[in-house]
Nucleic acid binder design. Structure first.
Lengths: 186, 186, 186, 186
DNA sequence: GATGAATGAGACTTCATTCAT
DNA sequence: TATGAATGAAGTCTCATTCAT
């Protein structure tokens, strides 16, 4: 009567589903069936739909969660006393996490998912905005660059497939070009 | 000895289907049903499948055709006596055509479509290679840049949605950043 | 510790589908649509495909089930102390059940179904083999007859349509001829 | 004005289609597409439908033609002065031609084709009747056997697959059993 | 008369979602 | 609350048949 055991169970299941969904979506795209997500989470499909009323809601939750974690990383970096290093680190980090993952770029651009993800997508500008402002203050990035450009450019790097060694090297080169383009011309 | 009459009709229908498919795929993604492509082309669904035996074949044909047209544009630009302008023009042109079209970026990166489009995708490197080489000879682009980077960066710009005036402006700014990153540092 | 409730419903539906499919296939051939099988079973088409992932799997299940029941009958007859009567009874029984049912002969001979049914078809030789061996020991059937001949001959009899009284009589006469051919010549 | 050249062409095409259809149907069943029959005949699909207004009509024509040829063979055998040999020869001949050919047994028994082939099927009893009567007169076949039994038994033998050497041997054994069953008991 | 492109009904199969247990 | 069986709309593809050339 005191504690509420079932609530704990439910929360754990929700986390499991979210984790399984992220892994599966990222590896094979958001078109994998909900059934497969459930199987991979070790729960029944009914449980998935209990926690996320539609597949779209599940997809949104997955990416919102990922963005939340990016937000946490950004918050820590904002406190850094080297704003230039902070933004390069963050952009590299995003590129690294998203590298070669279809689902990430899909999430931001797929026509089908566009409306679904609009709310989740709005988080990224907030965290990036702070990092960008500080980097521009110290002259690490051109003054005329805005957050949307950063997002577009990160997605570019994220799309470079890096399953092979050449892929990893290519991603590094693309990142370098983008960073160079972002720096003020001397 | 002259020509066969019925062929004309078939060719016209094939073109219609291809045009309708490009429009529909580009506007709403390659996941729209073949039925809808047929309806939009004003033909029966059987006609679509007669010309393209599977949906994958239709998708490939759409993008192969687009790349063929890019190839033609590139061929004309290669003959230009201003290699720097030529490559900027080509990259801008690709960005402009593909801008905001989900299907374009999908076509190059979607996990599902990857195998389907491999043959079509191989055309782009060829035409870009020539433009890049000439641009590097005259020092318009860094010597260490290779074709894969160019493709990755073009896709970035292509993904910037530009249905609004702000979108168009954003795309221009992203393009400028990328071009700056590609130029040799002074 | 007891049993799971939902299983009961599923099992009942599986049986319903199987029964409906046997009836429909036997009456009108295995080319009737899965949709019709579902309708005749009183379930949705999705339910049919949940229990039998392909139409081929459904067909195989139908005939495997039938053969299983034949196997049970044969097992009881093998224990009989009159091996001659046992095999005549069994062959008559098979002829009777399969009589006039297109699906039965199709199942054993159709080119399309051949591979699908290979596993199910392997059951029949086993049960027939025992009956035949005992019948041969007591001299009821020629020593040189083997199981494949029996199967071929049963299919012949099975094909005699017997929806009319004349059909039933014809089947009896064909059966008599075959039995005579199987007996040792005096 | 005298001869009618186009008629000759048409007749030749009709024969081609018929021959191709027999080969294809017999080898792979009557479910092969009309398109494939046309391709195998070296004509357009329109030509097939000009000569045979429906697929069912084509199927019927194929089997009617085959039965006509059987009829010719039977007519020659009826004139033989050894009626016993005549009927064994004819039955063996039918078994040999039809052996292992799905289409043949299908043609006589498939639910779908039943109505279509009724007219063609009526030819066989006529030719068999004469052979049987003479064989019975000389005591080669039991007096109580009728044509329907013969047809049913021939179909049995026809179904024995004989693509392998064992198949051929099996067919011979089944034929021997049937012949024995047809002979008067001593 | 011959051709083969066009048509659309219909087949099989998948999957998001609902609901009885 | 969790489960997974049931559902049926929708998608891809086939094929008999029609008809313009």
């Amino acid at each position: 009567m005191t504690a509420r055991a079932p609530r704990a169970d439910a929360l754990r299941n929700r986390s499991r589903v979210l984790a399984a969904a992220e892994q599966v979506f990222v590896a094979r795209g958001t078109s994998v069936s909900t059934e497969e997500v459930a199987r991979s989470a070790g729960v029944g499909i009914g449980t998935v739909f209990r926690h996320f009323p539609t597949k779209a809601a599940l997809i949104e939750a997955v990416f919102r969660e990922r963005l939340r974690r990016f937000g946490e990383e950004a918050d820590q970096l904002v406190a850094s006393d080297d704003p230039a290093a902070a933004i390069w680190t963050f952009l590299s980090r995003v590129a690294e996490v998203a590298a070669g993952k279809q689902a990430w770029a899909d999430a931001f651009t797929s026509a089908n998912l566009h409306d679904v993800l609009t709310p989740a997508r709005e988080q990224l500008p907030r965290v990036l905005g702070a990092l960008l402002a500080r980097a521009q203050q110290v002259g690490a990035i051109r003054a005329d660059v805005t957050v949307p450009e950063l997002i577009a450019l990160m997605l570019a790097v994220a799309r470079v497939p890096d399953e092979t060694p050449e892929g990893t090297a290519l991603r590094a080169r693309v990142l370098a070009i983008v960073f160079d383009g972002l720096r003020p011309r001397p």
